[in-house]
């Protein structure tokens, strides 16, 4: 009886996860079907049909290059947002500051303008400073759009930490930078990590800005890369879903690996100091 009670939550969790993953599982199954199977409405691939995956990586669409580009842009944006976000969040959460609420709201407002309205002016600005078709041309706007989330999440967590932390750090002779790096970040690790992942994924998935600002093939990101597969009318579902699987799975694996590394690394840092 006790055993059942112990297992029950896991059974429930597995069922729930299956339900959540259902559309994704379906996407993966469809990516393993030929176009004939898809059109006839089968729900299970007859055999393992890998042609869609080969097609994704066949030389015509240097898809690996797009993945690398997305990686650079998303990674840099995540690092930049968290860095800038930490500084701002620390000032807002732990220091005496006048007009704090106005600053908070000003930062938040970066995520208020509809993106479609921002495209045209961003294009003009970036062209003026010569950043079209560069990584920075995407990193800077993405950082702006994600800064609110980073600052507010970090603020929320920094504020919950006990007020004696700075004094203790000061007693140890730690400077300001070291205090943030070795004391605050590790303690707020779950928040920092979550914010970084959310920012990373946002950039990984963004389409309209990436399409408009970086037109050169060498600068394309994965979402634009996927948009290159459909024809004028033709929708190669199998290839599109294969490409979507290719860009989603590594993300999940990455998070799985990283969350252990980063969280434990940060924790170790906290214990050391």
């Amino acid at each position: 009886m006790k055993k059942i009670a112990a297992i029950a939550p896991y059974v429930f969790a597995i069922l729930l996860l299956l339900l959540i993953a259902l559309p994704f599982i379906w996407q993966v199954l469809t990516s393993l079907m030929s176009s004939g199977e898809i059109a006839s409405g089968s729900s299970w691939p007859k055999g393992l049909y890998f042609k869609n995956y080969l097609e994704v990586f066949s030389g015509r669409y240097s898809f690996l290059r797009y993945i690398a580009n997305s990686f650079i842009v998303s990674g840099a944006t995540a690092v930049l947002s968290i860095t800038i976000g930490c500084l701002a969040a620390y000032a807002l959460a732990r220091m005496r500051l006048r007009h704090k609420n106005i600053f908070m709201l000003a930062i938040l407002s970066a995520a208020m303008l509809p993106q479609i309205a921002a495209i045209s002016p961003l294009f003009l600005i970036l062209r003026r400073v010569g950043l079209l078709n560069t990584y920075w041309g995407l990193i800077i706007p993405y950082t702006g759009f994600n800064l609110p989330l980073a600052v507010w999440m970090l603020y929320n967590f920094f504020r919950q930490l006990p007020p004696e932390l700075e004094e203790a750090a000061a007693l140890d002779g730690a400077g300001f930078g070291r205090t943030i790096w070795h004391v605050f970040l590790p303690l707020a690790a779950p928040g920092v990590f979550t914010a970084a992942i959310l920012v990373f994924i946002f950039c990984w998935n963004e389409f309209l800005l990436a399409l408009t600002l970086n037109t050169q093939e060498s600068m394309r990101t994965v979402t634009v890369g996927i948009a290159m597969f459909p024809g004028l009318y033709e929708m190669p579902w199998g290839i599109i879903f294969a490409a979507a699987t290719v860009i989603t799975l590594p993300l999940v694996v990455l998070v799985l690996v990283l969350q252990r590394r980063i969280v434990s690394g940060l924790m170790a840092g906290a214990i050391k100091s």
Partner: peptide, 12 residues
Amino acid sequence: EMPESSTSQHDA
């Protein structure tokens, strides 16, 4: 080269 979708091209 742009995506073939008419809408994507029009927007850009």
